[in-house]
Design a binder for these strands. Structure first.
Lengths: 149, 149
DNA sequence: CAATATTCGTACGGTAGCAAACGATATGGA
DNA sequence: TCCATATCGTTTGCTACCGTACGAATATTG
């Protein structure tokens, strides 16, 4: 994608990047006062709504590689917001639990729903559905391609 | 975007991220044998097709912050693929030029157009146009929002 | 049961992005 | 002319991705 050729193909690729980065920028700005990164927020959100979870399962839910999540978990543990225990049948696994400190921080965080609302409100539902369908199809194709390369 | 609410809003946000990362993954895999990152590729591509350029102008063309491009330029200079000279009227500016070593590498690189083709070929042109329009609008809104936060 | 293969988490090194702060250089006014 | 202001590039420090390789633990298979 985005390799200097004309046509809608490249446009979609370029705008995909811009849109992703722009959304993250707003999220990062909203979370900056709390010293929290956007993916860290997702981890807390998942723990808040789903309770304790095995690290690997959280990685699958958030679509993060083990190495990526490992670093994020380490950061959150260092901040005292979550706890990483090895309590389970499978001794390889790590169970993640929110601490009371994490719960306290969570209560202070602003509601971030304004971001997607600002981005997509008022846009035709059919167009949004089309966009989702195109992006999903392209993603599936790219992920399949990645497995062959 | 992507904050755990239902509806097309969140879908678009989530797929935007997935699609961007999937495309980059394929590009990275294709460029890995050449020890070249995707953004480094864009810099070389821009220099190859547009000739020498002032660093700041390249940053605007690629939509990168000065700090981001500064690091990428340093990497490419370290690899001997580009040259950074201060030849100009404005002594603050740096002019970027491809080296012969960079030209040689460029000739070895594969054509990456297969990536966007694999992603988007066969998809209805109107749907691609809709997707581009939605993503552009959302991006503009998010960038405007970022300026107020 | 022993050997092999898989999986989980981590460490390391790399790419890519940003904000903030700084020195050097232009530029515009007073 | 001189000072305030803006701009360019860099540095520092951070988030967040990935692949590879490794040890430990579990599964599977012979």
């Amino acid at each position: 994608m985005r390799h200097g050729q004309d046509g809608e193909h490249v446009s979609v690729g370029a705008w995909t990047k811009r849109c992703y980065l722009a959304g993250r920028a707003v999220m990062d700005a909203a979370l900056r006062p709390f010293d929290l990164g956007s993916t860290q927020w997702y981890v807390l959100w998942h723990l808040k709504s789903g309770g304790p979870i095995v690290q690997r399962d959280l990685g699958r839910a958030l679509e993060l590689e083990r190495a990526t999540l490992s670093g994020i978990v380490a950061t959150l543990v260092r901040k005292g917001l979550i706890e990483q225990t090895s309590g389970g049948e499978d001794q390889r696994q790590r169970l993640l639990t929110m601490t009371s400190s994490g719960e306290a921080l969570w209560r202070q965080l602003p509601d971030l729903s304004f971001i997607s609302q600002a981005a997509f409100d008022g846009i035709d539902e059919a167009d949004l559905a089309t966009t989702t369908r195109v992006l999903r199809l392209a993603t599936e194709r790219l992920q399949a391609l990645a497995r062959t390369v």
